[in-house]
Design a protein around this nucleic acid. Sequence first.
DNA 1: CCAGTTTCGTTTGGCCCCAAATGATCTTCC
DNA 2: GGAAGATCATTTGGGGCCAAACGAAACTGG
Lengths: 189, 189
Amino acid sequence: MVESAMAATDESTGDSTGGRTPGDPDDELLTAERDVQARLGDRPLDFASLDAVSNLYRTAAAVRRRAEAGVLAEQNLSFGGFTILWVLWVWGEMETARLAEECSLAKGTLTGMLTTLEKRQLVERHPIAADRRRVLVTLTPDGEALIDELFPRFNRFEGEMTGALSGDEKRELARLLRLITTRAADTEG
Amino acid sequence: MVESAMAATDESTGDSTGGRTPGDPDDELLTAERDVQARLGDRPLDFASLDAVSNLYRTAAAVRRRAEAGVLAEQNLSFGGFTILWVLWVWGEMETARLAEECSLAKGTLTGMLTTLEKRQLVERHPIAADRRRVLVTLTPDGEALIDELFPRFNRFEGEMTGALSGDEKRELARLLRLITTRAADTEG
DNA sequence: CCAGTTTCGTTTGGCCCCAAATGATCTTCC
DNA sequence: GGAAGATCATTTGGGGCCAAACGAAACTGG
């Protein structure tokens, strides 16, 4: 895998300390870095940022896959579908525009996913009398029962995935990620 | 957004958007945490893990969207398509099975994306004489020129996205993410 | 009132993405 | 050699996901 070389272990920019056995991950890391740098000639390479971002994407995909293949598979829920139920569970009924925002989904995407969840009787759409363009989304009793049973298991799954981190490290991770999200939002548009 | 209440800065729980001053993110964090805990009754909540994982997914999606709307949009490349070109650029020609592994894609997914890239003459498929089931994928000169021009800009984009972090923080972020990826891989199957 | 504009959710068209089924090719073992 | 089994990439079917186009409903100024 890319990370096995690009991102496998830390001390990424350190100089090579002697006496590595061939196959030492640090070696591969440096080799990969040198290979990329060679491709770039004398153009500078920001390897720390590269490493952070590529791991970000990879890790998110891995966790998502594990969730969908594990806890969520039994209920045949996608990660996004679970998020919708969870948001409604914690914060209560909500109009579609805000729900899309909370779930970090495009509104068109939400429409389709709500239809899927509605077919399974997990959520309901209610027209709003005062403004017939808008729609209120609620959890059905079935949906509520499902998420009530599912969330604790999902939370345990989250604990397993982050089990190699201390509590402080988890909070530090969340903090660093938030810094990136904020930056991404700020430079938007 | 979930984190806007769970983990960032936003007023989220009121229907009225009445101006809550951009005060304490901690406040909202604790409010959200209390709300979730209330739903759980006396079942325990691992909030640190919840926060880490939900931010992970959100941040990755935000960065991906920014990339696809920015640097990659001009070349009409998806994040996954870019990754394929990048892997071939750094490590040279490769068989499809390994390429899928490197790009963290299901092999069936890779087939479709290679077809897309092949139509644009960015990559080529070459049958392997010794084993006609297998296929070697190479970058065309066009593909090579594209990634050679694109990667430095992508690397700058990565620097912008992580611009709020120090070099040490970027490396720490990558380290923590790797711990999660490893755990996800270990518990697989 | 009522045309023009804005603001909703939905539809559309197009990729990405996966798991499972498929078909072609290679290997094994008799 | 040749059938049985393993191992490839591809195909299939079904969602997820987005941006842009769309149509209905609500606001706005005259």
